[in-house]
């Protein structure tokens, strides 16, 4: 499997009015194309910061981050935006859909900043909505949807630009266990189609759906191992929380 992400001694510091806080310390690991990796850690462990760096929302303070063999250190803000748009899909804990906007338009959003020809938009959007099983909700406004439906719209939005990697930041954090199961099953399905998925969570059970778990504590990787007893949730069965 080709390497998608290579981290070498990556660190991240924040400077708040002269007070320097080091959040990530010399992190090194690789992620291969098509892997389903869970980044686990309690709050304050630095997992969100790590996701921001991996997801091109933030830059590392030191060390190296190669994405598809390219060093991202020298990228400008707009180049980062371009990579986010074309390579990355985000799924957030609080869904982050545009209010008073239809499912269709929400899913369309990343396409508006992409180079995908306009005549392909409609098909792409409809395919993505179909993939998460919301075709009949296409013209609903985002605030008319349930939490689970909202997150599925967010997944469709993450997929619409055919990214090579999806970052899911506590995607089940605001959902009941049954709905959470559906979301995790959907992610596993996407993984099977060859999309790399990085799941950031503090819940052991959610993390167990991945095939590899990287544990973070105080900004350091404390363990990085393959999950042996991986959970496959049948759709609608629910997961333990």
């Amino acid at each position: 499997m080709p390497k998608l992400i290579e981290l070498k001694d990556l660190c991240k510091e924040f400077n708040n009015d002269g007070v320097v806080t080091k959040v990530l310390h010399s992190i090194s690991f690789n992620i291969e194309q098509g892997e389903f990796v869970a980044i686990m850690g309690r709050s304050g462990s630095g997992k969100s910061t790590l996701m921001n760096v991996l997801g091109f929302l933030d830059k590392p303070s030191c060390g190296e981050y190669h994405f598809k063999n390219k060093n991202i250190k020298d990228l400008e803000d707009d180049e980062m935006a371009e990579i986010r748009n074309s390579q990355v899909g985000f799924i957030f804990q609080s869904f982050n859909l545009l209010p008073r906007t239809t499912v269709f338009e929400n899913v369309q959003l990343p396409l508006m900043y992409s180079t995908v020809p306009v005549n392909e938009h409609k098909k792409r959007i409809e395919d993505a909505i179909a993939l998460v099983g919301l075709s009949e909700r296409r013209d609903y406004l985002s605030n008319q949807l349930s939490g689970g439906e909202k997150q599925r719209v967010a997944i469709a939005r993450a997929l619409v630009n055919k990214p090579s990697i999806i970052f899911a930041d506590e995607p089940t954090g605001n959902l009941d266990s049954k709905t959470a199961g559906i979301i995790m099953t959907t992610l596993q399905k996407l993984d099977k189609q060859g999309i790399t998925i990085i799941l950031v969570t503090h819940e052991e059970d959610t993390a167990q759906h991945a095939e590899r778990m990287i544990k973070l504590q105080d900004g350091v990787v404390v363990s990085d191992e393959k999950i042996t007893n991986r959970i496959y949730t049948d759709e609608g069965a629910g997961i333990k929380k």
């Binding site: 803000d77 935006a81 986010r84 982050n96 990343p110 900043y113 630009n161």
Partner: peptide
């Protein structure tokens, strides 16, 4: 501000 943040996360550039 959230909407702007989201759009930027999804790839909107400054000029967008």
């Amino acid at each position: 501000i959230q909407e702007v943040g989201l759009k930027k996360a999804l790839g909107a550039k400054k000029k967008d």
